[in-house]
Amino acid sequence: MRKDITVAADVRTSRGKNEARRTRSGGMIPAVVYGAYKEPISIAVDPREIRKIVRSSTGFNTIFNLQINGGESTPVMVVDEQIDPLKGTVLHADFKRIDLSKRLRVSVPVHTTGEAKGVKVQGGLLEIVSRSIEIECLPDDIPESYVVDVGELMIGQSKRAADVSLAGSAKLVSAPDTVIAHVVALRAEAEPTPAEGAAAPEAAPTAAEPEVIKKGKKDEEPAAEDKGKKK
Results as ranks from 00 to 15, higher is better:
residue 67 Q to C: 04
residue 205 P to M: 15
residue 97 R to D: 10
residue 129 V to C: 11
residue 111 H to L: 12
residue 100 L to S: 15
residue 91 L to Y: 09
residue 176 P to W: 14
residue 213 I to G: 03
residue 191 E to A: 11
residue 23 T to A: 02
residue 229 K to S: 13
residue 63 I to A: 01
residue 46 D to L: 03
residue 117 K to Q: 06
residue 81 E to W: 04
residue 202 E to V: 07
residue 230 K to E: 10
residue 33 V to W: 08
residue 20 A to C: 04
residue 81 E to I: 14
residue 188 A to R: 15
residue 226 D to T: 08
residue 191 E to G: 13
residue 106 V to L: 07
residue 95 F to G: 03
residue 159 K to G: 02
residue 125 L to Q: 13
residue 151 G to Q: 15
residue 49 E to H: 14
residue 201 P to Q: 14
residue 29 I to K: 00
residue 82 Q to E: 00
residue 58 T to F: 02
residue 11 V to Q: 07
residue 201 P to E: 10
residue 61 N to P: 09
residue 21 R to K: 08
residue 68 I to T: 07
residue 67 Q to S: 08
residue 184 V to F: 01
residue 212 V to T: 13
residue 102 K to C: 09
residue 180 I to K: 03
residue 43 I to K: 04
residue 216 G to W: 13
residue 147 V to F: 13
residue 174 S to A: 09
residue 156 G to L: 09
residue 64 F to T: 00
residue 13 T to R: 11
residue 98 I to E: 08
residue 35 G to V: 11
residue 202 E to R: 11
residue 209 E to A: 10
residue 209 E to W: 03
residue 227 K to I: 08
residue 2 R to G: 10
residue 185 A to R: 13
residue 26 G to F: 06
residue 50 I to K: 00
residue 138 L to H: 15
residue 14 S to Q: 10
residue 79 V to D: 04
residue 19 E to K: 06
residue 142 I to P: 02
residue 106 V to R: 08
residue 131 R to I: 04
residue 76 V to I: 14
residue 106 V to T: 14
residue 181 A to E: 07
residue 218 K to G: 13
residue 170 A to E: 11
residue 105 R to Y: 10
residue 117 K to W: 00
residue 98 I to F: 04
residue 89 T to M: 07
residue 42 S to Q: 14
residue 176 P to D: 06
residue 38 K to F: 01
residue 63 I to T: 00
residue 155 I to D: 15
residue 46 D to Q: 05
residue 35 G to Q: 14
residue 104 L to R: 00
residue 116 A to V: 09
residue 111 H to N: 13
residue 193 T to P: 07
residue 101 S to D: 12
residue 226 D to N: 15
residue 76 V to L: 10
residue 131 R to C: 02
residue 167 A to Y: 12
residue 177 D to I: 13
residue 77 M to C: 05
residue 97 R to L: 13
residue 137 C to Q: 01
residue 89 T to D: 11
residue 29 I to Q: 00
residue 124 G to W: 02
residue 182 H to G: 04
residue 11 V to M: 10
residue 207 A to F: 08
residue 190 A to C: 11
residue 167 A to S: 15
residue 147 V to Q: 00
residue 50 I to L: 02
residue 42 S to A: 13
residue 127 E to Y: 05
residue 193 T to I: 11
residue 182 H to A: 12
residue 180 I to E: 03
residue 62 T to Y: 00
residue 139 P to Y: 06
residue 181 A to D: 14
residue 185 A to S: 15
residue 117 K to G: 03
residue 1 M to A: 00
residue 138 L to F: 07
residue 175 A to E: 11
residue 24 R to E: 10
residue 111 H to Q: 15
residue 91 L to D: 06
residue 115 E to P: 00
residue 43 I to T: 02
residue 154 M to P: 06
residue 93 A to Q: 02
residue 163 D to W: 01
residue 76 V to A: 03
residue 23 T to F: 00
residue 82 Q to A: 03
residue 178 T to C: 15
residue 29 I to A: 01
residue 41 I to R: 02
residue 93 A to G: 13
residue 53 I to Q: 01
residue 10 D to G: 13
residue 18 N to M: 02
